[in-house]
Amino acid sequence: MMKWIFGVLVIMAATIVVAMIGGAPDMVSGGPHPEYAGMSIGGDSAARLDGLWIEGLILYFATFLMAPAFMAFGVAEHNRNKTFWTMMGGVTALNLVFATLLIVFYVDFLNTGETFMLLGFPAPTAMMLYGCWGTAALYTVIYIAGFNKFIFTPEDEKTFEALIAAKNAEKTEA
């Protein structure tokens, strides 16, 4: 699994290098607000991502994929069974659905200049606030529900107790 993680990290770094070679469009990271000194603006949404969409999307989706990869890496290999992968895969898919909807609604806004409000925010931002933030909480549900099955199984507990016993025996001998 580490080779996969390493590969994605290298791809992310290479993506940044490729993007740098292409150069930065104007206002790629915003500029000062013409009227208010303490504010910055993004300006022309489409123009500032011109030629950088692919690189931006690689970094964006890599971030959403790396998070569950690190979580899975933290679970002992022998505990990563079919149920674990199904649950992690399901939550990751759901999380990615909202991450994708965010992009779809954003691109639609860039093309049409129009969007709709959802629970107080424009649709793409609502996907971020309610969708991406909310669905990622399901990883916590897996942690709680699967604690005895994947995180710290009864066998793990026995090994832990044996380690403590060995340590105590060593101390007594010393």
């Binding site: 206002m27 915003g30 910055s40 603006i41 993004g42 500032r48 931006g56 925010f121 424009p122 793409p124």
Partner: peptide, 28 residues
Amino acid sequence: FTAASSSLLADDPEAIMPFGSGGMFAAV
């Protein structure tokens, strides 16, 4: 918040869009 978002949208849409005025790379 709907009115607050609308004010930001009218002034500079990027500010209230998901990547803000800092842009996609800074946000990611």
